[in-house]
């Protein structure tokens, strides 16, 4: 999947990937896609939950050898 911005959260544990995602998304424009690279397995359920809470669009996850690429589209301010 193609993303406009990438956020490196390798090695970070909960809640940091979510806190950093929220901060990053704030600085992006509506319509842009963010790729979050993480190793904390919690991201698999935390990112959809975060998207549900904030109204952003969860596009999906790519999983490879305990590394996760999660895609979020900013759909609202």
């Amino acid at each position: 999947m193609k993303a406009d911005e990438t956020l490196d959260c390798f090695g970070l544990l909960c809640p940091m990937p979510i806190v950093k995602t929220a901060e990053k998304i704030k600085a992006m424009r509506v319509g842009q896609v963010l790729e979050v690279d993480a190793t904390d397995v919690g991201i698999k359920s935390d990112m959809p939950a975060w998207c549900k809470a904030t109204g952003q669009e969860y596009l999906g996850i790519e999983e490879k050898a305990a590394e996760y690429k999660v895609y979020v589209k900013k759909v609202r301010q």
């Binding site: 909960c14 806190v19 901060e23 809470a53 904030t54």
Partner: peptide, 12 residues
């Protein structure tokens, strides 16, 4: 703090 910072990140 984990819950509080997460809640703030969830627009609360």
């Amino acid at each position: 703090f984990i819950l509080a910072t997460t809640a703030a990140s969830m627009n609360m």
